[in-house]
Every structure is written in structure tokens, then in C-alpha cells.
Nucleic acid binder design. Structure first.
Lengths: 258, 258
DNA sequence: CAGCAATTGCGTAACAAATACGCAATCAAG
DNA sequence: CTTGATTGCGTATTTGTTACGCAATTGCTG
């Protein structure tokens, strides 16, 4: 959806291809240079920011739609992606302005009764990516993107500030129970590397000496018999996520929760 | 929606009042006589069971819609109600039969292109109620109800078996972090009462002597200086949910999770 | 009224998990 | 070979969880 013709077609006839009244919004956490960021897109003509999102095709499974939308924006596949909440407590399409006014700013002729202007619930998904590997694709409705620090978010469109807050909460609660580092670290990594990753995500300090014990006790990572020279200091050992053990723990964990 | 005229009106023009393509489904856990049950409705003409559900009004906040739907079926207000997942991985309205065929069984003239027959995502909520206090109201589309044991569920319509499973999982995971007993026990209760409640929900035994320590340590309940005579045995003390402390713990818990 | 059965209240010991922190080993630079 | 910065490893302390013993209460019974 990059040309004006495609966009116009989408506005007029999109409801034949997509389910109206429901959208998927993605909170894409990016990690690079020891910082946690969120991908925001600037909505054309509005000078406002919003989360990447999209609609569900009429015969497309929900989970598949979420992966497709994520891939369309980041050009990445096989990511960790998880649904965390569905938002719909505001009965308006857009905050503090009429839907028509909102639409006009795109410079398109949007009819008053377009499906795009109707109330739309938002199903929230979050993902974790290494943002040095992402090539962001914008479309007709967006004209810029930025990786924004979690603590410095501007006012976002729709209910997106609530969405981000809830995503962050969910991420932090699940960090020891999901293979969250998989896509953020190289296949083999050192303890200091995964240590700063977890500190960054949780936004607090974790004891350097206790931290590895916890991950090993949970069976999330395993030690390799290799080291990586890092210059002027002692060479750290390399570690790997222990997928087998993790999958096993997941099963038992669920049983244990009963 | 009890008369045929109302139902026909709903089938034909419901999409003007409600958002199509999205529904709310409620897993209503009932507790009575030390048993945990789920409320099921029988769909007219189908001899099949389904969860109580409903649609969201066009200008109604999502949370409010969930409470309204719950109240319409159970005639109860002010319940513990929580969203837990949104389901949409099956792109079909109904399993293993055409939507038209499905609709015909109601004995209504449903047009092929009715909004009701289109694909519909389901937002899952669960609630906990004392089922001796519930008076179930059925409508035109349902002709019976039952409280069904969690472990003896029949094949349900739509994706409702998955919905129940996920609800149960969520309930069990959150039982020590949400005021789950509020609506299931009298305001003042004894330790043995809340003890069997928790055992029933979790489906496993909990040590009678350690259990109160945990609840008190979490600040979920507080001891009162009253006892209740229970006949042929030692009189147990009464306890109360500690709402103040719970709200405080919730805030700190969230902070601590960072 | 003493003994009994059933139940509640309370405590303590054993074990496991989380936290705090000391210190030696390693590596390159000067 | 000393220094500074960093990693690896260990051990004590505290906190939380689990297992389980036993006395106190209540009404019934002989």
C-alpha cells in the first residue's frame, strides 16, 4: 500500500478484504547498544506518532495476521510475538477530534461513512527484535519512523500509550518464563551480554554474580566450552539458550501451575 | 431478545446496533457445595452447548459490554470479571458445518449474507460467582442451561473448548494475586471455608496449616476477633478479605515487578 | 462427667530459593 | 611486573516453602 491509488482503494474497499472494527497493534521492542526502544510510525499529515498496526484478512487466522503485519513493517520473520490484551474502552476512533477531520489530513477523499473511520478495537501484540537487523517499511499512511526510548514516549494516537504500558508490564512479568532473548542476542553470547539485556528490559540492576545462577537454575541457558576474547580483560565463557530444556520446563511449568 | 420478532430483528439489523466481527464470550465459574462448575447454554435446535456471550454495542466501552453481557445472563452485578485472551485462529464461524446450515436450525429465516454468519473474533472474559445466587436468563437462541463440571465438558460450539482451557489456566495462575474469593464467599468466612475453595479451584490438596500463613503473608486476608460456632467442633475464627492491603500490594507488586 | 471423635489453632524443624558480598583469576597496557 | 578493569566462582545470610507434631475446643456418648 504505497501509491495513492492503492491507498484510495484501501479506504474505499478495504472492508471487503479485511475485517472491519478490529485491528492489530504491535509494540515492537528493539534492543541495540544496551538500550530498549519502541518502534513508532509517524502518521502522514498529523505530525503524530502511533504504533505499527494493521487489519486482519477475512479468512486469515489471527496469529498469522499478527506475524504478517509485523513482517510487513520490519521485514523480519520468526520472531517472538505474543498477544497480551485487547483494547476497546474508548468508543471513539480517535482522541479529541472527529474521525472525518482525522482522515482528511491524509489528503485523501475519505467518505464520511468509510469503514476506516468507524470504531475499531485493538488487539495488542508485542515483539522483541534486534533493531540493527530491522529495515522499516513505511506505507502511504505513514511518512517516518523512529525508535523511541520507552521512558520518553510522546503522546500517541488512539489508545496507544495504554497499549505500550500494558505491553511493558507483560514483558517484564514474563521475562523469566519466555525465551525472550532468542532474537535479541547472537546465538552464542556471554554472561555480561545477557546480563545487561535483562537489566535494560527490567529497568533495574541485577546482581552480576547471582544472575547467572538464576538463569541456569531455570534451565534457560547452558554453558559452552568456548570463550570469546574481548580485548583488555579476562575472556568470558560463551552461553547458549537451552531450547530443549526450555520447552520441557514450559510443559512441566504448566502442569506445576495446577 | 426473547420473542421471535426481536430475534428476527437482531439477525437482520443487529449490525446497526452492534459491532460485527467481534463478540465477547464469558467463562462463568460457579462455586457451590465445594464444586467448581462452568455455566453453559444450549443453543436452540442444535443440541449443542456453548459459552454465554454477546456483542458489543457500537458506542459501548469494551469492559462495560463484558459486564452487561454477564449481567444479562446471570442477573448479578459487581462481579470479578477479567479479560484473558482474544481468539481468532479459526477463520470459520462454526466448526465442521456451513454457517447457513448452522443458522437454519434456529428456525429463523437467516439470509446468506447476514452479519451473524460472518467470521467473528471472540474476546474471552472469565468471572467467578456463587451459583446459588445466580438466576440464569436464556434468550431466543438458547433453550436450556447447565452448570457443568470443569472436568466433564462436552464438545462445545465455536472454539469454546480452547477458551475454557485458557480461562482455567489464567484463573489458576492468578489465584494468589487477585481477590478471587470476593464473590464466592460470605463477607466473613472461616479458614476451612477459603481452604476448600482454593483446593477446588486449583484441583489439588493444600496443606491445611501452611495455607493460612501464605494468605496472611500476602496480606490477602485478615483475622477478625470473632468466632462462628459450627456445631460439634471447635469454633473457627472468622476472616475477611483485606481490600486495603490488597490494593496496596497490587501497586507495590507492580512496582516490584519492574 | 470422663472419654471419644472430629475439627481447629499454633508452632517448629527441615529444606529450598533468593540475596549479599568477598576474592582470586585473567587480560592488555604501560 | 604492576595496575586497572573485568570475569568466574564460592560462601554466608536471609527469606520463603514444605512437612508434620500436638494441644485446644466442641458436642456426643457411655
Amino acid at each position: 500500500m504505497n501509491t495513492e491509488e492503492e491507498a484510495l482503494n484501501f479506504v474505499k474497499y478495504g472492508h471487503k478484504q479485511y475485517l472491519p472494527h478490529v485491528a492489530i497493534d504491535c509494540v515492537i521492542f528493539g534492543y541495540y547498544d544496551q538500550q530498549l526502544k519502541i518502534l513508532l510510525l509517524r502518521v502522514k499529515g498529523h505530525n503524530s506518532w502511533a504504533l505499527p498496526g494493521g487489519f486482519i484478512q477475512r479468512r486469515e487466522p489471527l496469529t498469522q495476521a499478527a506475524y504478517r503485519i509485523l513482517q510487513e513493517r520490519t521485514n523480519l520473520k520468526d520472531l517472538f510475538l505474543q498477544q497480551f490484551h485487547t483494547f476497546g474502552d474508548s468508543p471513539f476512533r480517535v482522541k479529541e477530534t472527529s474521525a472525518k477531520e482525522f482522515a482528511d489530513k491524509f489528503g485523501l477523499e475519505v467518505e464520511e461513512n468509510s469503514w476506516l473511520l468507524e470504531r475499531t478495537l485493538s488487539i495488542g501484540y508485542f515483539a522483541l527484535v534486534d533493531y540493527s537487523k530491522v529495515t522499516v517499511t513505511t506505507d502511504f499512511f505513514t511518512d517516518a519512523y523512529q525508535w523511541c526510548d520507552v521512558s520518553e514516549l510522546p503522546d500517541l494516537l488512539f489508545e496507544h500509550n495504554d497499549v505500550v504500558e500494558k505491553a511493558l508490564l507483560t514483558l517484564r512479568l514474563q521475562i523469566y518464563h519466555q525465551p525472550i532473548g532468542y532474537n535479541l542476542l547472537p546465538e552464542k553470547f556471554t554472561l555480561p551480554e545477557i546480563h545487561v539485556l535483562y537489566e535494560t528490559i527490567l529497568g533495574k540492576e541485577l546482581d552480576r554474580r547471582n544472575f547467572p545462577k538464576k538463569l541456569l537454575a531455570l534451565g534457560l541457558i547452558k554453558k559452552l566450552n568456548e570463550q570469546r576474547p574481548i580485548g583488555a580483560h579476562r575472556s568470558p565463557f560463551l552461553y547458549q539458550f537451552d531450547k530443549e530444556n526450555y520447552d520441557k520446563a514450559l510443559q512441566e511449568g504448566i502442569v506445576h501451575a495446577y
